[in-house]
């Protein structure tokens, strides 16, 4: 496979939230939501990001689109730093990276009609489209995401969750972005609707050549839509590689444990597969473990894991990168 061009590049992205100490307790808590995450997103590619609650997935999404300023590291869109841009450059960059938010019930202003919601991007970026052509563009967008243009004058509460998410997608598409960050776009939807919305994302990618950063905690959804997958744990990337590599031969113990927790839809196969249950919860990102962050729950952990942090590297460049001193050697999912 030839190296496709990189659209979005995340370099050593770090975001620490400071919970200020009170007057009596001076030492401030630092929540290390993101601690040095790097990846490249190629054109027309979907990068799935999975991980437990609190591992920094949403912070990653918010930082990429500029809702949060990174503590360190850079996000570059075709070489331009997203967070260093100001004024006009910033507006243009903003246009090229859009986000689809998680909760379709609260991510649309309840006081605006669908038409107003879709006109808003053009009111903010007045130079994008002359006023006369905006209505036509809105009709086009609505049809693109599979909604009825006759319903443009309805309010969001008159739509179902899936339809609202389509409105959210249409709004993200309005500015013709290159990259769409999807922050758990389907987790608030019914399972039957999830499939429709995921298929919509795939169709839009084919038609418009979009690149997605697709964040979810549902492994099956991510597997369905992603070309490559990144597994996050406590603000760091544990494993990053092609979908088949990560899913079929996970190298990081955390990935393997995560995958073994996916339910098997076939009752005949149930019980034939070893399931590895991790003990406890992820440690607090305020005070992460030394060395490898996963070592407190890892069954393979040894002394070196507490002292030396394993870097994210790919020993075999054709396979995925992982951050582990004692990687899994064979497909864990087939063992019985």
């Amino acid at each position: 496979m030839a190296m496709p061009d990189v659209v979005l590049s995340v370099e050593n992205l770090t975001k620490h939230f400071t919970a200020r100490g009170s007057l009596l307790r001076r030492s401030p808590h630092v929540v290390r939501a993101l601690d040095g995450v790097s990846f490249d997103l190629r054109a027309s590619e979907t990068l799935g990001i999975v991980g437990e609650s609190g591992c920094g997935k949403s912070t990653l999404a918010r930082t990429i689109v500029g809702l949060e300023r990174p503590t360190a590291g850079r996000v570059t869109l075709r070489g331009e730093d997203v967070h260093a841009a100001r004024g006009r450059d910033l507006r243009v960059l903003r246009r090229r990276v859009q986000i689809v938010l998680q909760d379709p019930y609260t991510s649309l202003n309840p006081r605006r009609t669908v038409r107003d919601l879709l006109l808003q991007p053009f009111e903010i970026h007045r130079d994008l489209l002359p006023r006369a052509r905006r209505e036509a563009r809105i009709d086009e967008l609505v049809e693109l995401v599979g909604l009825n243009p006759d319903h443009l004058d309805r309010y969001p509460f008159q739509f179902s969750g899936g339809q609202r998410q389509r409105i959210g997608i249409a709004r993200a598409l309005a500015l013709e972005p290159e990259v769409i960050v999807c922050d758990e776009p389907v987790s608030a939807l019914d399972v039957s609707i999830q499939a429709q919305v995921v298929n919509l994302f795939q169709r839009l990618q084919r038609e418009l050549g979009l690149s997605y950063v697709f964040i979810a905690h549902d492994l099956s959804v991510v597997r369905h839509i992603s070309d490559r997958i990144g597994v996050m744990y406590l603000g760091k990337m544990a494993e990053l590689g092609d979908r088949t590599d990560v899913y079929d031969t996970p190298r990081h113990p955390y990935t393997s444990a995560l995958l073994s927790a996916v339910p098997v839809p076939d009752p005949a196969l149930r019980g034939t597969r070893s399931r590895r249950l991790l003990e406890g919860d992820p440690p607090s990102p305020v005070d992460p473990p030394s060395g490898c962050r996963f070592r407190t729950r890892c069954w393979k952990a040894q002394d070196v894991c507490a002292t030396t942090e394993p870097p994210l590297t790919a020993p075999d460049p054709r396979e995925q990168a992982f951050a582990c001193h004692f990687p899994m050697t064979q497909p864990a999912t087939t063992a019985s």
């Binding site: 808003q120 991007p121 903010i124």
Partner: peptide, 21 residues
């Protein structure tokens, strides 16, 4: 509310968000 974030990602400035949202 998340829709305020939504407006920010679209590029809305503070004045627009305060007065319009």
């Amino acid at each position: 509310m998340p829709y305020i974030d939504g407006a920010r990602v679209l590029g809305a400035g503070a004045v627009r968000i305060i007065t319009r949202e």
